[in-house]
Write a protein that binds this DNA or RNA. Structure first.
Lengths: 338, 338
DNA sequence: CTGTTAGCGCATTCAA
DNA sequence: TTGAATGCGCTAACAG
């Protein structure tokens, strides 16, 4: 491997001089600068960032931990994060936790030994606290993404899940629905709690009685509990609309509904959080769409600000706006139609 | 930061002894081993992989370069790659090239200085050759993913684009189509050439005359040329079916077709390469689906085999099977229907 | 403007 | 079974 010493020897200077032209630091005469640059070119020299990291105590690497890159929301987050990191001169290490604490722990261990400069962290659940404390103990800055973790004060970028859920449910109410079910992610995830709170608020604001039988808790990874759905449909007064906690739940739900011969939106309206990605042909779901790309880009921005100490000591909390997009998966209930 | 020296001091041994228990190398008495382990626990010691990399000359990091993580095909590739890498004890650095040679070059430079142990590389185009030669000059093993690059001999995992295209087009022919257009990616990408070849072969095998007016070259990132589409539709004998080079082209095409009031599949059948991801509700496109997850996992596998010298010196070429999935976007042409 | 010294955290080699 | 010396490639701090 070519090192600064090889360059130095070739150029009849000391290694230090070479180092200085690499980093544009110190005073070097223009003559020797171009001469050394030329030699570096010729010898295909590339600085070894491991060695540099070791002495500088920084790696210029960030890591992104998300539940699942396969979810279009996080795919786009990742793209935003990668673009921002690249633009600011950082590399991005990434990992999927599948909302599993044990995978998350594995990943945190990896991250610690890699000495990344910071972590953009979308927590598996409320129980991720210890992992974050581990990071903090090792003085690795992190920014929370999307999900709040109780007891952890830090920078964070998120959407407003409560407000988004409220908008979605009020849209259903405005269409005439009164029996509205929720199929939610695990309540150990902050966004799921907030979405439930938004749902409840919408009902209350519209004087619709809450009915716990209409509230199902599953997980964000997929539609998980067919039996629960059947029970929902066999209620004396079944729901005419469902608010799905995220896109994956909504997709799974629709599939089940199709299997059961229930038409959407004719017999059942379905709305959900988060869009389905750029590749979808005929946008179908009524959703609250969050600016996923911004989530990632802004997260990296906050993280780097924090790393560089370019921020105020107080924690920053950025809340990105979401947008209600009304499409074909929701309509007035049968009973209210001509 | 806690180092082996801190541990050593605490345990009244030399740093080397600590190093040996960390790596399970050399002979250490069981007593001191557990004692040192305990102290490492207590002091929250985590080995510094930068320092280790520097001496061992390996980073246990791999990098994945793809055109765009936002494309569901590559999203799934990335997931397969990350899982495989993690399982085998490697971290994954990732980057998007957007099929741009200059972004690709930037990324290659980053990768060189990071001293990753290997690169899983989905080339921007035929012109990526120099980038690969750069990697080779620096003795960084790589495996090509999905796309062949002329003049570069190496390990590779790919699908059979020609065969897949042939199946797709023969399906259309079997349905009665004779005027079949192609909207393809750039012909500087190997898969686009092979898909075109498969198309041509299918026509020839069925004695259908080739017509260059039916062949459009765009790019894989999106549907790019509306004017060309109009020309296609205004041909004296317009196509009754289109073979789209990939999923993004197909999605863009459908959108345009909808705008123009052309119904799919009634007035125009559309088929394409690659599926649209797990999040799609109602699978619609007739596609040739490739096992994207395997692409990623197998790519990492080959790469690590190569790194470890666990392979034969000859280059390996793994071709993953693809599957024709017939769905609603294709049907018999109007002229052939009752 | 340029060079010398020292050390980042760790593992290999060889000696004790 | 353990330890001392050495070096991986680089840069900060200082000396010339």
């Amino acid at each position: 491997m070519v090192t600064i010493y090889d360059i130095a020897k070739q150029a009849n200077v000391s290694a230090m001089t070479v180092s200085k032209v690499i980093n544009n630091t110190g005073k070097i005469s223009e003559k020797t600068r171009v001469r050394i640059k030329k030699i570096m070119e010729e010898m295909n020299y590339v600085p070894n960032s491991m060695a540099r990291s070791l002495v500088l105590q920084e790696t210029k690497m960030l890591s992104l931990l998300i539940p699942d890159i396969t979810n279009p929301f996080f795919t786009t987050v990742a793209r935003g994060a990668e673009d921002a990191a690249m633009r600011l001169g950082y590399k991005l290490l990434f990992g999927n936790s599948d909302e599993s604490l044990s995978k998350e722990k594995e990943y945190v261990d990896m991250v610690l030994s890699t000495r990344v400069d910071g972590v953009l962290f979308s927590a598996a659940s409320d129980l991720s606290g210890p992992h974050l404390e581990t990071l903090r103990r090792h003085k690795i800055p992190f920014v929370l993404l999307d999900r709040y973790v109780p007891g952890i004060d830090c920078d964070m970028v998120s959407g407003d899940s409560k407000e988004g859920a409220r908008k979605l449910v009020e849209h259903l109410i405005a269409q005439g629905h009164r029996r509205i079910a929720v199929i939610n992610g695990s309540l150990t995830v902050s966004t799921a709690r907030e979405r439930l709170a938004g749902y409840r608020e919408a009902l209350k604001l519209n004087d619709i009685p809450a009915d716990d039988e209409l509230i199902l808790e599953m997980n964000y990874k997929q539609f998980a509990d067919e039996a629960a759905l059947r029970r929902l449909l066999e209620l004396p007064e079944p729901p005419t609309a469902v608010f799905a906690g995220n896109n994956f739940i909504a997709v799974g739900l629709i599939r089940k509904l199709l299997e059961l011969g229930i038409r959407v939106p004719d017999q059942m309206s379905v709305v959900c959080f988060d869009d389905l990605g750029a590749s979808v042909i005929d946008p179908f779901f009524t959703v609250v769409s969050q600016p996923a790309y911004q989530f990632g880009a802004m997260g990296i921005q906050l993280l780097i600000d924090r790393i560089k100490g370019a921020t105020t000591p107080e924690w920053k909390r950025v809340v990105l706006p979401s947008e209600l997009i009304i499409r074909g998966s929701s309509s007035a209930p049968e009973s209210k139609r001509a």
